[in-house]
Design a protein around this nucleic acid. Structure first.
Lengths: 239, 239
DNA sequence: GCGCCGAGTTATCAAATGTTAGCGCACTGT
DNA sequence: ACAGTGCGCTAACATTTGATAACTCGGCGC
């Protein structure tokens, strides 16, 4: 059941049997959320962190004028709020974009991992660091890429991340979001989001229908996005 | 000499004498960089992480068309690349925006801290988590705030962060950046950056001259920015 | 079968933002 | 004193992006 977690953490360095059982022991209490439901509420002080087993979720903040901005997309094998273990208070919410199955990690058990399992601790720390690296890439995309390039970059990132946890199907992956939700990822109006999507479609590098994205020209998509996966740290080495 | 590091880490939870001496032992090898010099090069695999003792630095990426985007600003007491300890390869550069005095932390010594000092490890982890929280706030600002609000938010954030390490002077702080550099923070053209700065100045909440920002109306600046410092985790509690 | 409703799409116009160019001022080196 | 240079600032115009509205289409409940 924790296969996607093992695939995710294990891509960076090998996980010993002991570590896998520590993780198995850590994760307990499966839950389900419907699309649109809050998985973690802004302002709360959760006593556990949440791992996605299945579904798509996102972190978000809402401003006074009602504007919403997603700050990350979370796929199976991702902790959506591992940082809450040390940050304590959630300064933003996490929402299920599609029906989500999740499993919980008690903060007290996480703490005992930091006391007793340094290597596993470093791998969990690394997981949050990659989170940060993705944030930085999003900042660059929002600030200095064209909107088409930004969207292309997002598709590259999602494809690669989903591939790691075996949630791609050939050159396709499931993306259960509306154009309005995607607009809250890129920081655009819905109308302009539609224009950008049309442009990327017309360039012939992707198709997107029935909530499924198909990459028609991976080479060219990467070029448009100037995609360099270094920031995802997808190499196995001692950590 | 490590006072700003102690102020920075110590604001979140108390640092024992043992932990302070561990940190003292960790940090060695002072260096200086001139404004405009790279402190860490993109693509490198540093064997140590860098702490700022004095000066202002920034992480950045450069795109193919020459566009540059800063992804963070780093003040005294900040590790500019603590994550490189686990991420291994730098996917971006770090530049000195003003003359910088820094001190280094060997990655091998950092690793031994994770093996032997769990509480200090958690505080260092926390430091990188706050980094991530700041990134998320920047994403929200870039995506959904007006440009004036974005700039106001940046000033709020810098003021509060500099206050923690005692680098403010009343309601003023030193900000040794040109408008062109600031444009690379907000993701704007230089011309538009100038318009935004003028607008914020004309609203009477800040003054900015001789590389010194003075907050004239802290209340109103926070309102314009919708600033909520929760994300900076500035409360002292067990971590 | 019928109508409602959400999502995608397009058109039109307005506002925000970028580009290019130029001016003035303070600072610097000669 | 002088020219050169970096930086802040402004103008004029082009392009991108947003706001509003309307139309289509398919799913879904009645």
């Amino acid at each position: 059941m924790l296969e996607s977690l093992f695939l995710n953490l294990g891509q960076h360095d090998s996980l010993s049997d002991d570590e896998q059982s520590l993780l198995g022991n850590l994760m307990a209490g499966e839950r389900s959320f419907a699309a649109g439901q809050d998985i973690v509420a802004s302002g709360s002080r959760p006593a556990y962190s949440t791992l996605i087993l299945d579904g798509l979720a996102a972190r978000y903040k809402v401003l006074a004028d009602g504007g919403r901005q997603f700050t990350s997309l979370q796929v199976p094998g991702d902790f959506v709020d591992l940082y809450a273990f040390l940050l304590k208070t959630m300064d933003h919410g996490v929402i299920a974009l599609s029906p989500c199955r999740v499993i919980l990690a008690d903060h007290s058990k996480l703490r005992s991992i930091t006391e007793r399992a340094p290597h596993l601790t470093r791998l969990l720390w690394l997981d949050t660091l990659i989170d940060g690296a993705i944030h930085r890439e999003w900042i660059v995309a929002m600030g200095r890429r064209s909107k088409v390039s930004h969207l292309a970059h997002l598709f590259c990132e999602l494809f690669v991340r989903l591939q790691v946890v075996k949630h791609t199907n050939g050159m396709s992956f499931h993306l259960p979001v509306s154009q309005a939700e995607l607009a809250d990822v890129l920081g655009l109006s819905v109308v302009h989001m539609n224009r950008v999507i049309s442009a990327l479609r017309n360039s012939g590098v992707i198709a997107w229908a029935n909530h499924t994205v198909t990459i028609l020209d991976w080479q060219k998509l990467q070029q448009i996005a100037e995609f360099d996966p270094t920031y995802l740290s997808m190499t196995r080495e001692p950590r």
